[in-house]
Amino acid sequence: MTSVSSTALSGLRAAQLQLDSSAHNVANLNTPGFKRQTVELQEEPEQGGVRASLGRAQNEGSALETDAVDQMAATYSFAANLQVFKAQDRMMGALLDQKA
């Protein structure tokens, strides 16, 4: 069984990788021959959470609309996983209050 914090941490790492990748793609928007970075997410059933890895698009060129959506989704994912950390902290505090 995994801890809630390790599951949330994997989500934070995946969101950060997505933000970094989409920022890299936007920065290289006009670079000739550039192939976009992609982020593949894979479930970690035994450890919990998600594993994120970088890949490359098959075709050259930009997809600014995709990168903008990816940035927004990563921002929401980052915020949601941060809320999981906060909820765990509150639950642990309540548990300690009950035991003390």
Rank of each mutant, 00 (worst) to 15 (best):
T2R: 07
A68E: 08
A68P: 07
Q98L: 11
L29M: 11
L17A: 09
E43I: 11
M92C: 06
T75P: 00
L54I: 15
V50K: 03
Q16I: 14
A63S: 13
A27W: 01
E46F: 02
A14R: 08
T75N: 10
Q16W: 13
S6Y: 05
S62A: 15
M91F: 01
D20S: 11
D89K: 06
V84C: 02
E43S: 14
R56M: 09
N81V: 03
N30R: 11
L95G: 08
A68W: 10
N59M: 14
Q47R: 11
E44W: 00
T7M: 15
Q98A: 05
F85D: 06
F78I: 00
S3G: 14
E46T: 06
Q88I: 04
E40W: 02
R90G: 01
N59Q: 15
A23P: 01
G11A: 10
Q83H: 06
N59S: 15
A14D: 10
N30A: 13
N81P: 05
L95E: 02
A68V: 15
Q71P: 00
P32I: 11
R13W: 08
A94H: 12
D97N: 14
R56K: 12
M1L: 12
T2Q: 07
V50C: 07
P32A: 11
Q37T: 07
L82G: 10
L9C: 14
V4Q: 03
A15W: 04
L12F: 04
L17Q: 10
P32N: 13
Q98T: 09
Q16S: 15
